[in-house]
Design a protein around this nucleic acid. Structure first.
Length: 900
RNA sequence: GCCGAAGUGGCGGAAUGGCAGACGCGACGGUCUCAAAAACCGUUGGAGGUGACUCCGUGUGGGUUCGACUCCCACCUUCGGCACCA
């Protein structure tokens, strides 16, 4: 160890340097879009949050990733748009208002101020001149404009819909707010179904495009695309028209057409009964008088049940025969009509033909009620019998008992039974091939206060018309009581509700519902392109300038709803010619969660007995209040906890890693952490611990490691700052020494790795590469004992490579090394491939694929030479022994494998 | 049940057909100190050997290949999504 390094003073990374750089960035507008007009553009966006107030580290991860990418592209010379805003409408503000009597607006804006402060002290840099807040009339007026655009295009319509009704809170609930047992999350009451007039957006009109265009989104995670594909749920089949005979009639002229959807029209000849959803509109007419009571009871019961209960696969089949029959159009057979809750009104036509022999659900139903089973697909090598078969046969085979398609191979391909059956149906006018989607239209009405008023007028004669564009926004009125009482709280604002139709002067009532907040977030990324435009939703020019978003970053929990809605609205606006692309987000990255263990101290009541706190006991359902240490250890282990001894002899129960959250109480508040350790430390912890798509565990050890890394940077360069400036000015790098060449090569390897890794979101390995360079540099500095130009060049480059990950320290180093202005104007270093080349390289020698030795050879050694060196190598020879060499595989620059 | 992803040291992870375990954490040993912390240096997949070294090792079993953590087949486990969708 050299004299120089042992005497080196230990300096520490000081978080107190951070505030001045934040002020500097803001003052200089380093991260303001348009600062480098003419440079290549980049739009980087993190999903905007609901403003929940004070942020913890778990919230921060998303923003740290976006900030690192932004800084990387800014230092590379791009013109970057990196804006931020607030998804500020929604229930929490309203609930707080109900609970504390504070106005939702006041509550929301104070939360925004707090959240913004957390982002500021963390040094996450946005172009705040483009900030949007969805609860501001400046924003939601364009929500209303958008609603009216969809209305004009026939994509917004009004219809009756069944909603979840909480009889205790007297309010409508969203599907997500009803638990698996059909109870309200707030009141715990059993939710009822009610029919209400609601507004819908016709997203199903775009189902096919939303599905097909998923193939274009090659920079989206495959699992998100799969989830959207499943959600859209395309299935191809046929609609077949049966004739439903009223009870007691056999005359076809009395019959009503009854359309069913099926993906297996080829099995029509095996239909032995028909099932309608209990809500099906023809049920009332088709129910025989003597069946009336039973059917009504069944329908009432089904109505009480939640969707989840109804669609549970484990429950027994239930249903009621309603006393009438339908005529099967392929063979004119009369089959009984049942109602059963396993048929859903919302999918297909709400009616099915049941083919028990070849459908598992129909089979169960037939066996439960003793209905006949008729085989129409005979599988190869088996003889199915409808009376004895134990389960349905959904597989391949040959069509039998099927009139015109007998003998056709079963299947969906060309020349197989499904296509043949559709051809037959269409030729005879009894049905047609069709496509069905699981996706339903987007119900956007909410009977709640804190949202965008729906900008429509209802006239006394039943006419519904848009509020004229020049009267937008329809501003949310002030109300006394935010508690919904069956209607939106807006309905109580009489002076607001009652207005005049400006065209005719006739009295009109305003729509009292507000829009789903997912409407707000389905186009906010477009508003960022032109956030202050007071005349239009955004200018076409601004949208063409920035859209689509180059990189979108957010949580997997939005994989379906938000992303699907945004894609839909973007397509609508694309069809209007307002945006340049019909997809909003070119690339999507879904980050993992930040987790932290929860530590609960136990009370020690004797040397080997501990007492569990009440809360922990309840949470873990622990049997006893106090336990011996040994027993406590076992009991906790069964619940994923460990028991840890503290230095003072007390004991702590430690949970497994759980996602940081307010409710788990394990969040690390951003402000205090940043003041004590620095935002640069927090960033390194978050980015280095694991690949960003994985969840990561936040630990004290991780914090110490990140701190150590930054301290070692400061220690290595701090004392040498003047010498480094002098060496940088001294001119030529002397690469004649081995140590210098090694350091120079390591530097260029690092530039390459950090560049490529950062572009691929591999921040953990990029930072690992910087650590390796620091290790190499520390070694060099200790061995050389002097600041050489090569070392100085490395130091100044290091500052720039650090800029995406530890921005404050990067600026500080840049300043130390004589840089002027911001490190983000210093340019990103380029690597030199020639610097990566070695004169001598190590080649691996293998015998039968096993490593047996290494030799140093000139980098340009050819295959023949390598072959000779390998077979004359003593270690290789000793492993070859007296066996004959059968083959020699040479990979120049890498290895030689001798096969015997 | 169906679909998808993933299984590598004590831990987070690295290596995507060519030296398994980069980088970090932890642990152990040392230097400094009255002492501790910090910092620094060293060791750290397992087994064997005084040692140079040897054998084993990427969930399990097979396969392809001169060579497999990496590609293919089957299975096991874990996580996520969907789930009576006709």
């Amino acid at each position: 160890m050299s004299e120089a390094s042992t005497k080196r003073r230990v300096e520490r990374f000081d978080p107190a340097i951070e505030p001045k750089w934040r002020e500097f960035w803001a003052r200089e507008g380093i991260f303001t879009a348009g600062r480098r007009s003419g440079a290549p553009r980049r739009y980087i966006l993190e999903m905007f949050p609901y403003p929940s107030g004070d942020l913890h580290i778990g919230h921060l991860k998303n923003y740290v990733i976006g900030d690192a990418l932004t800084r990387y592209y800014v230092i590379r010379g791009y013109d970057v748009l990196h804006p931020f805003g607030w998804d500020a409408f929604g229930l929490p503000a309203e609930n707080a208002a109900i609970k504390y009597g504070r106005h939702p607006r006041e509550w929301t804006y104070s939360n925004i101020a707090e959240s913004k402060k957390s982002l500021d002290v963390a040094g996450i840099m946005y172009d705040w001149s483009r900030e949007v807040t969805t609860c501001s009339p400046d924003y939601y007026r364009w929500n209303q404009w958008l609603f009216q655009l969809l209305y004009r295009k026939g994509l917004a319509y009004r219809a009756r819909a069944t909603v979840n009704w909480d009889p205790v809170d007297q309010t409508v609930l969203a599907n997500e707010q009803v638990d698996a047992e059909g109870r309200s999350w707030r009141s715990g009451a059993k939710v009822e179904k009610r029919e209400l007039e609601q507004w819908f957006f016709k997203i199903t009109a775009y189902a096919e495009r939303l599905l097909n265009d998923l193939d274009k989104l090659e920079h989206w995670p495959e699992r998100v695309r799969t989830m959207q594909r499943n959600w859209i749920g395309k299935s191809e089949g046929a609609e077949v028209t049966f004739l439903a005979l009223p009870p007691g009639s056999d005359a076809p002229e009395d019959a009503d057409p009854l359309v069913v959807f099926t993906t297996r029209p080829d099995t029509l000849w095996g239909a032995t009964f028909m099932v309608l959803a209990p809500e099906h509109p023809l049920v009332a007419k088709l129910t025989a008088p003597e069946r009336q009571a039973e059917a009504a009871a069944y329908i009432a019961r089904a109505r009480m049940e939640s969707e989840i209960e109804r669609t549970s696969t484990t429950r027994e089949k239930s249903g009621v025969f309603i006393g009438s029959y339908a005529i099967n159009p392929v063979n004119d057979e009369r089959i009984p009509i049942w109602i059963a809750d396993y048929v859903l009104m919302g999918y297909g036509t709400g009616a099915i033909m049941a083919v028990p022999a070849h459908d598992e659900r129909d089979f169960e139903f037939a066996r439960a009620f003793g209905l006949p089973v008729r085989v129409v697909v005979q599988p190869p090598g088996q003889e199915l019998d409808g009376d004895t078969m134990a389960e349905a046969w959904p597989g391949d085979g040959v069509m039998v008992n099927s009139g015109p398609i007998n003998g056709v191979p079963a299947g969906k391909e060309e020349g197989q039974s499904v296509k043949a059956a559709i051809a037959w149906l269409e030729a005879h006018g009894r049905g047609k091939g069709t496509v069905n989607y699981r996706l339903r239209d987007w119900l956007i009405s909410r009977q709640r206060y804190w949202g965008t008023p729906i900008p429509m007028l209802h006239l006394d004669d039943g006419t519904i018309k848009p509020v004229p564009a020049d009267q937008l926004p329809v501003v949310l009125p002030e109300v006394q009581d935010y508690l919904p009482r069956g209607k939106s709280p807006l309905a109580a604002a009489e002076h607001w509700v009652n207005t005049l139709d400006p065209e005719t002067g006739r009295p009109a009532r305003r729509d009292t519902d507000t829009m789903d907040t997912f409407v707000d977030s389905s186009w906010y990324f477009l508003r960022f392109c032109d956030a202050q435009n007071g005349n239009e939703i955004f200018s076409k020019e601004a949208a063409y300038n920035w859209m689509p978003v180059d990189q979108y970053i957010g949580g997997i929990e939005h994989a379906i709803l938000h992303l699907l809605y945004s894609r839909f609205i973007t397509k609508v606006l694309y069809d209007e010619g307002l945006v340049p692309d019909d997809e909003p987000f070119k690339a999507l990255f879904t980050q993992g969660m930040v987790q932290r263990r929860v530590r609960t101290p136990l009370e020690r009541i004797s040397p080997d007995i501990v007492r569990f706190p009440e809360e922990l006991r309840r949470k873990l359902e622990l049997p006893a209040e106090a336990q011996t240490i040994e027993h406590a250890r076992t009991v906790l282990k069964d619940r994923g906890y460990t028991l840890e001894a503290e230095n003072d002899g007390s004991w702590t129960a430690v949970s497994g890693p759980v996602t940081m959250s307010k409710s788990a109480g394990n969040g690390i508040p951003v402000g205090p952490f940043v003041r004590q350790y620095g935002s640069d430390v927090a960033r390194i912890v978050v980015l280095f611990a694991a690949p960003p798509e994985n969840s990561m565990e936040w630990t004290d050890e991780g914090v110490a490691g990140a701190q150590r890394f930054l301290n070692r940077i400061v220690t290595l360069f701090g004392a040498d700052r003047e010498a480094i400036v002098a060496a940088l000015n001294a001119g030529h790098d002397d690469l004649s020494g081995d140590a210098e060449r090694t350091l120079h090569r390591k530097l260029h390897e690092t530039i390459k790795k950090v560049t490529l890794d950062t572009e691929q979101f591999r921040f953990n390995t990029a930072i690992a590469a910087l650590m390796e360079l620091l290790n190499e540099a520390t070694r060099y500095r200790a061995d050389t004992g002097a600041v050489t130009p090569v070392f100085a060049r490395m130091a100044s480059t290091f500052a720039r490579l650090l800029a995406p990950f530890a921005p404050h320290l990067a600026e500080e180093l840049h300043l130390w090394f004589g840089g002027s202005g911001s490190v983000y104007d210093a340019g990103w270093p380029e690597w030199d491939e020639t610097a990566l080349a070695l004169e001598e390289i190590e080649v691996v020698l293998q015998v039968n694929g096993k490593l047996r030795g290494r030799i140093m050879v000139p980098a340009d050694a050819d295959e023949q030479q390598l072959r000779e060196w390998a077979i004359s190598n003593p270690r290789v020879l000793s492993f070859v022994g007296d066996r004959t060499v059968r083959r020699i595989v040479v990979v120049p620059g890498k290895l030689v494998n001798v096969v015997v």
